[in-house]
Each structure stands twice: as structure tokens, then as C-alpha cells.
Design a protein around this nucleic acid. Structure first.
Lengths: 191, 191
DNA sequence: GCAGGGGGAGAACGATCGTTCTCCATCGAT
DNA sequence: ATCGATGGAGAACGATCGTTCTCCCCCTGC
């Protein structure tokens, strides 16, 4: 097995286990067993558990960003693109392994003691809000209003993730989408 | 020191430390040092760390419920009472020790391995949504709409907590409040 | 004054974890 | 065929943690 596939297998296994049980409850042996990669190789590629965790979060960050990008690109108007984000959330929440947003969870567990984890979580949440702002700017909304509306939409999306994680239901995505529609209507973002 | 004050000191110390560093990063020795209660007494009152954690979360649940109750009771109309919840959040987010919602954080860290923690978090979030529903029902909103609107407001509140925790800012509370106002307007909850 | 019991300080214990090390099998190059 | 390097399996190590135990002090009832 070459280094690239070993790394991918490690990130896959670690991501799944961290998602399922949290970070600190997962031992390096469990990651080794699940990935089929030896401890020696593991520590060659990721010198510490922190390094592995941050690599997992960085890859996950890239995954969710491109997933949202792809979901919004499939629609034409800014309004539909904003709503597509919430449709994307609903689909995500329906997956079997869904147990909340990795960044919200990792921040809750380690944000207080690991600045690296806190930074990655912050960056991911900022990128979500920036994405909303970009979509709204294309609708020709006045600049002052887009930032406020983007912040409100980000709060809705994060609330959907947190609520869906805890309750284990997809409903929060639909409620967030409905609320987003109301906010877009009120801001006169109709196309 | 009698049992009641020992218990209170333990819950205070554990709550502060869990909030600051997460649950698993806090050793029982740290709780003993911070509380000034001996390990023997600690284990007499709480036979395991899990018991202590659940007691902390249950007390915290009572605290946030009564805090929201008190904040809403200070206002007259259903609309103002709903908005008072978000003012209450903003004040909370401004506290120095604020590091996100205990239930969202605890669920992220332990919800996957501890059904007790997951249950308490679920109950807390359900009570928040129920509270919104009760406030809206008093406004005479049609029953079908109150549940949907209450769910949307709960998503907003949870999103404010998650976003404020990660970004360390009070702004999400104001954005959530603004969004809530828009939703109330759209649902014609004007008093 | 004294026996006894409850509580405090902290050592001790067993388990687990992150990390490193040992030993051995494999394999390509000469 | 032999050498050297590579990597795998898993033991070993040191630290930490949850939990229990030991020892001693102090207080109370007679």
C-alpha cells in the first residue's frame, strides 16, 4: 500500500470513529484496526493524534465547502441557491452516520484546550457565512443588508445542524429552510 | 462542611471546569482541588464521574429553564416574551466564562457513547422549543402554525448558541433576534 | 480520659492511552 | 544467495485517569 492510500484510509477511519464516538474516546489502536494501517505508518504520516485530528477536520472542511458549492451551483437564482443549502443539509442529516456537525462537536470537546481545533472550526463557520454573503451579493441586495442577512442564514444553518444532531431528526433542516424563505421574502430577495 | 454545601461546591466546580475544558479533559483531582471537597466525600455523593456529569447537566438544565422563564416573565406580550429569550441569550454570551451551550458541547463530546447525556441534551432542547410554543399559543396563533414557528425559533436559538460559542461573539444573539422578529412579523404575531 | 467512628490528605491500584521500540518477514539490488 | 532497507505485528513504556484504600486526625459520648 502506498502512502497516499494509507493516508486516505487513515483519514476515513479516523473521521468515522471521531464522528461516532467523539475524539478522546477513540484510541489510536482503534484507528489502526479500522484503517488496516500499522501504527508505524500512522505515526510516520501523522506525528501525533492532534495532527491526525486536524488533518481530518481540514479534509472535512474541504468536503463540506465543496458539497455546499456543488449544491448551490445546481441552481440558477441566488434565492434558489440559498435554499439549496438547506436542502443539502436535509439530505446530510438523513445519512445513517450523521451525528451533528464535526466542527461544532470538535469545538465543544476540544475548543477550550486546543487552539488549532478552535481555529479550524471558526474558519469553517466563517466560510459558511461568507458563502451566504456571496450568494446574496449576486442578488443585488444592498451591501449593508447582505451581511446581516448572511449572518442570520448562517445562524439558521448552524442551528439546524446542532438541533438535528441532538434530536436525530431531519426536521430542523426543513424548519430552517422555511425560516430562510421567510427571511428572503422580507429582504425582497425574490430571484 | 455539611453534605448540601459539599454537593453545591462540587457541582459548581465541575460545571466550571467542564465548561472550560470539556468533560474528559477534566480529572477528578481537578474537581477535588477546585471544590475543596475530598475525593472520599465526592464519591459518597456521586458514585462515578458519569453521575457527577449528569447531575451537573440536570442542574444546568434547571438553571437555563428558570433563567429563560424569568427573562420572558418580565415582559407582557407574547411577541416581547419571544424576543426577550434572544436578549437573554445575548446577555449570556457576553459572560466571560461563556464557551457555548453545555448541552450542545456535552452531546458533541459524549452523546455518541453516553445515552444518559444524550437524553438530557434532548430534553433540554425539547423544553426550549416547548417554551416557544407555549409563548406563541398565548398569542392566539393557530395551533398548526405555532408548532412550526416554535421549531424555527428553536433552530435560531440553538444556532445562536453554537455560532456564539465557536466565534466567541455576542453578535449571533442579535442576528437571531432580528431573524426572529422577521419571522414573528411574517406570522402576524404583533402583540 | 478514652474508645470509636467519620472525614481529610494523599498514596496506591488497575486500566487505558499515546507513543516508541523490538523483532521478524519480505523483497529488490548486486 | 546475501545484504540492507522497508514495513507489519504487537509488546513495552511512561503518563494519566477513575476509583479505592491507608493512615491519621479530630470530635463526640460516656
Amino acid at each position: 500500500m502506498d502512502a497516499a492510500t494509507a493516508e486516505a484510509r487513515l483519514l476515513d477511519a479516523a473521521e468515522a470513529l471521531f464522528n461516532e464516538r467523539g475524539v478522546q474516546a477513540v484510541g489510536m489502536d482503534a484507528i489502526r484496526s479500522a484503517s488496516g494501517v500499522s501504527l508505524k505508518r500512522l505515526y510516520q504520516l501523522f506525528p501525533s493524534k492532534d495532527d491526525l485530528l486536524e488533518a481530518v477536520l481540514r479534509r472535512r472542511d474541504e468536503t463540506v465547502r465543496s458539497g455546499i458549492e456543488r449544491a448551490t451551483a445546481a441552481h440558477e437564482s441566488p434565492r434558489e441557491r440559498v435554499l439549496a443549502v438547506f436542502d443539502h443539509l436535509e439530505e446530510w442529516f438523513g445519512q445513517d452516520a450523521f451525528r451533528g456537525c464535526s466542527f461544532i462537536n470538535a469545538y465543544g470537546e476540544l475548543g477550550g484546550v486546543s487552539p488549532g481545533v478552535a481555529d479550524i472550526a471558526r474558519a469553517n463557520k466563517r466560510s459558511l457565512q461568507d458563502h451566504f454573503a456571496t450568494l446574496l451579493a449576486a442578488a443585488g441586495t444592498p451591501a449593508g443588508h447582505t451581511d446581516r442577512l448572511a449572518a442570520q442564514l448562517a445562524v439558521l444553518a448552524n442551528g439546524a445542524m446542532a438541533t438535528a444532531g441532538i434530536t436525530g431528526s431531519q426536521d430542523p433542516a426543513r424548519h430552517a429552510r422555511d425560516a430562510a424563505k421567510t427571511l428572503l421574502d422580507a429582504a425582497d430577495v425574490r430571484s
